[in-house]
């Protein structure tokens, strides 16, 4: 089973690519407000837990983020994006 997701392309751009043992995401938030707040909350959630290398956030200008996600934390990361409404839907296929 694989996890797939959908997002509103008017509000956010998400690209992911495998990178060795990790998955690398490029996320650009196109609108201020709830999604920007949401991505910061996701960052806070993973920075405050006891694992330091599960999900690493790198912030760039214009609300662009690079996120390096360890494979074993992929599902947790996707669900955290969903929880903060950055994703519209998540499905096992």
């Amino acid at each position: 089973m694989q996890l797939t997701y959908r997002f509103d392309q008017e509000c956010v751009q998400i690209r992911e690519a495998a990178d060795g043992a990790d998955i690398e995401f490029e996320i650009k938030i196109l609108q201020n407000g709830i999604l920007l707040k949401g991505i910061k909350e996701v960052q806070k959630k993973f920075e405050e837990n006891s694992v330091y290398t599960d999900v690493l956030f790198y912030a760039y200008e214009d609300h662009k983020y690079k996120v390096i996600v360890r494979k074993d934390y992929y599902v947790e990361f996707i669900l955290a994006l969903m929880e903060r409404q950055i994703l519209r839907s998540v499905e096992w296929v």
């Binding site: 920075e47 330091y52 290398t53 690493l56 790198y58 390096i68």
Partner: peptide, 11 residues
Amino acid sequence: MVPVTFSITRQ
């Protein structure tokens, strides 16, 4: 320092 070191070295 350790968490930020992991972040920078991974990058």
